[in-house]
């Protein structure tokens, strides 16, 4: 087996890197792939919280690097899906505790046993970013339709292009609000794609369900009804290689809108 190593990065903090990581990882595992997620945000780990695995961590990536345990011992299995594992970051150390070479080495070893290695990158463009990118050959750049996030994404894309190891990168636009786009108060997906001139792999709508799913430590892809969950599932399918059309986010979702739609459908039938 030779797994694909994908780094999930953004430059700016708070745009949803870790949420994206948790959801794509869970969705890929649900599709039957063997997935391991590596949290490289040393000192500020959070991927464990989003997956609800915070109480199961015994060893971290720093323990692996400093040879206090074997790599396999440090992999925390997901509660629901045995295909899914987490290699947690150490909370008590800083970004210098692991080097680029060491991360590369870990990725190489994991490639043998997993289909996908998802690397959760810290915010910023310093050593933490360099480490996270070191072992990857693909990247997903997460951004939102906001000026600062797009600007930082552009900077990240520039850095990724300069890296020989990164063979391809894709854009994921998070927290899209169709209503605001409709009223011309938010840049549209097309605007962002045009500005960054990058290939798109996903459009995720803003979804309050993300808040409750984070509270519970359960990725939203497990919620079949959630639109953001569907969108993340679609991203996973595109990563596997399926051709999945983007969701139509403009479709009204509220109860009143559904009733309206139902009646307008009836009218159409009478004709």
């Amino acid at each position: 087996m030779s797994g694909r190593v994908i780094v999930i990065t953004s430059g700016k903090g708070g745009v949803g890197k870790t949420t994206t990581n948790a959801n794509i990882g869970t969705a890929l595992a649900k599709a039957g792939k063997k997935v391991v997620m590596i949290d490289t945000d040393l000192g500020l780990r959070n991927l464990d919280l989003l997956l609800g695995l915070e109480n199961r961590i015994v060893y971290t990536i720093v323990d692996v690097v400093e040879e206090r345990c074997k790599l396999k011992q440090a992999l925390v299995k997901d509660k629901k899906n045995p295909n899914l594992c987490l290699l947690a970051a150490a909370q008590t150390r800083d970004k210098t505790a692991v080097t680029e070479e060491q991360l590369k080495d870990i990725c190489e070893k994991l490639k043998k046993d997993f289909d996908f290695i998802l690397v959760d990158c810290p915010a910023g463009i310093e050593q933490g970013f360099q480490n996270a990118v070191a072992g990857a050959s693909e990247a997903i750049v997460v951004t939102t339709p906001e000026m600062s996030a797009v600007r930082d994404a552009d900077r990240i894309i520039g850095l990724l292009e300069a890296k020989e190891e990164i063979k391809s990168y894709k854009l994921l636009i998070n927290r899209v609000r169709p209503n605001l786009i409709k009223s011309n108060d938010m840049m549209s997906v097309d605007d962002v794609v045009e500005i960054l001139s990058a290939d798109l792999i996903g459009i995720i709508p803003e979804d309050t369900g993300i808040i409750t799913s984070t509270n519970k430590g359960e990725p939203i892809v497990n919620d079949e009804k959630s639109l953001a969950g569907k969108a993340y599932n679609n991203v996973a399918r595109r990563i596997i290689g399926e051709d999945v059309p983007f969701l139509n986010l403009e479709e009204p979702q509220g109860v009143m809108a559904k009733i309206k739609k139902f009646f307008s459908g009836l009218k159409g039938g009478e004709k």
Partner: peptide, 20 residues
């Protein structure tokens, strides 16, 4: 749930006492 999970995690972070 969020508040309780966060409390436990913060305790662990502050005291360095892992679940183990």
């Amino acid at each position: 749930t969020a508040r309780n999970r966060l409390r436990v995690v913060l305790m662990q972070d502050r005291t360095n006492l892992t679940p183990e």
